[in-house]
Design a protein around this nucleic acid. Structure first.
Lengths: 337, 337
DNA sequence: TTGTAAGCGTTATCAC
DNA sequence: GTGATAACGCTTACAA
């Protein structure tokens, strides 16, 4: 592979001049500019990324941490983030934590090694005090989680209000005994949603059920298992708040197998308005989040922080959610499927 | 940020010795090794990735090209690839081509810039002769596509046989007039599947329909539109081969809206055995590919090529597929849902 | 407008 | 065992 030195020699000029041409800098006359350009062409020269990164102290790369890319919520986040980053000339490294605090730390280390200029976390599995240490090495943006103590940019919806809205909807449809499901037990999201759920119940005096296995509800299989448990242990439950459309889909699938009718016997509300929520039969009522807008904002804020060396300052962006009412909850009013 | 120089000074030793400790090299006595280790701890030293990349001429990073990460087929590929790469200590850059040949070239350039050590393509939008030029800069593995001319490692299933199997299944269920849908028109996959589809028809003398809009069928919305077109233009079609479960789901969704009964009026077969194919009601018959195995193999082969400097040699790995028969096609025999 | 030379933070070579 | 020193390929003062 030819280096800048080779190009300079071939063009009969100095490395400096070649460098100026590469970087579109002024102070190089048109004739020499052309000579450099044609030498670059002749030799098939391409600037070496590693050398530039070392010299310029920037990588033009960001890392995006998420649990698993197969979860549609996160793949939609990633799609938008990669697209936006690419527009700004940044590369994106995928970092799947698989819900592990240790893996999360491994990926945060990318910041200290200077392998990335900045990092977006869409899920959090360590305490903020632990994560905060990494802010010294580069900017971190939280997208989705809202940690109260976090002194950095955070992008999210009002999870408490969203859960409240969804739960109130179940209550209004006449549910008398509700179950609350969530993913990662200790996340800020779960705490906020639980609090919104409880608030809605409190207002109406409806009963609810806690169960250990309702604490790790992430995917279709979890949803199926949970419906089985509910049938065995507490068949009186007639309404379920789930934290994801996949879990809701699993519940509905299993309910159909067992001849339980949705929404009459059991109303179910999902989260995220994924394609599956529209496709299921019955379709799934769900809370819609503006995923693409949130993703775009996260990347913009991160790149701004990178380029302006901002850090250690809380900066909050709250996006709006909307409740999509569909057939998995609508008991009173007939809704065209 | 402290450098190796700072650590050396703090420990009262040379950079060389510190470097030896960092890289677990021999010829450093235990006492000094400890002194270095504790200096590193005191200063919070972390080796700078850019400097290492320049010096060692390797990035320990690979790029994975795919159309869109939200497509479940590709997100499952990516999940497995990132996991496997991570086990080997490699980072993964996501490169979404959005079906564009130009974007594909932009990402191939990562190889020439030495920003990645190697690259996996899961879809191809340029001619092989164009892509081949990049082999000079680093290894490329094709996972999913099978280009006949490609002199590199390729991992795939027998798409022709898979399409043949799926089509024969439709024929055996009594379909008299079939439609063939596919994604990217000019891909090797489409060519192979079309040829398998035709072979099955040829054997049985069944009719089939071509239509321009059947050529860009990638997602749920495309599926819905296509069913509308079929209803208007050729309602006699009673069996559809789709290249993806999402398209099949869209077709089924729209068919239900219109009161068309599946599989009696219309049998539909999907591809990939995604979650959606099990969840839909009726469930979708589909061709299963061993995505995770293919992804793992691709990463292993790529890393082997990187570390052993192999290149320019055709090397083919063909994986087995299986047809999952479900309710979207099973007319004769009742299958428990 | 152009070129010389220093240095980004590592690691490999070679001498001690 | 240990330590100077010279790269790796690039950019940027500073000089000319």
């Amino acid at each position: 592979m030819p280096t800048i030195e080779d190009v300079a020699r071939h063009a009969g000029l100095s490395r400096t001049t070649v460098s100026r041409v590469i970087n579109n800098q002024p102070y190089v006359c048109e004739e020499k500019r052309q000579r450099v350009l044609s030498s670059m062409g002749d030799l098939g020269y391409v600037p070496n990324s590693s050398a530039r990164r070392l010299r310029n102290k920037k990588t033009e790369t960001i890392a995006v941490l998420l649990p698993r890319i197969t979860n549609p919520f996160f793949s939609h986040m990633m799609e938008a983030m990669e697209k936006k980053a690419s527009e700004w000339g940044y590369q994106v490294i995928v970092c799947q934590t698989h819900y592990s605090a240790d893996k999360e730390i491994d990926y945060l280390e990318l910041l200290r090694k200077k392998q990335v200029d900045g990092l977006i976390m869409t899920s959090v599995h360590n305490d903020w005090t632990k994560i905060e240490e990494y802010l010294a090495s580069g900017p971190i943006v939280l997208c989705n989680e809202n940690m109260e103590e976090a002194n950095t940019a955070i992008i999210h919806i009002d999870q408490k209000q969203a859960a409240y809205d969804a739960t109130m909807h179940l209550v209004e449809q006449g549910c008398k005994k509700l179950a609350f499901l969530c993913g990662n037990t200790e996340s800020s999201i779960t705490r906020a949603r639980r609090s919104g759920f409880m608030k809605a119940l409190h207002n109406r005096g409806v009963a609810f059920v806690e169960h250990d296995s309702f604490q790790e509800a992430m995917d279709v299989d979890n949803g199926r298992e949970i419906l089985s448990i509910i049938q065995e242990e507490d068949p009186e439950i007639d309404g379920i708040f789930t934290g994801s459309d996949e879990v809701a889909a699993g519940i509905i699938y299993e309910a159909i197998q067992r001849g339980i009718s949705i929404p009459e016997d059991l109303a179910v509300v999902g989260f995220d308005n994924q394609t599956i929520s529209m496709l299921m039969n019955p379709s799934i009522s769900t809370v819609e989040q503006p995923i693409v807008d949130m993703a775009n904002k996260s990347v913009e804020v991160l790149i701004q922080h990178i380029e302006q060396h901002l850090r250690q300052k809380r900066e909050e962006y709250v996006f709006d959610h909307t409740l999509q009412q569909r057939n998995s909850t609508m008991r009173n009013i007939a809704v065209p499927m």
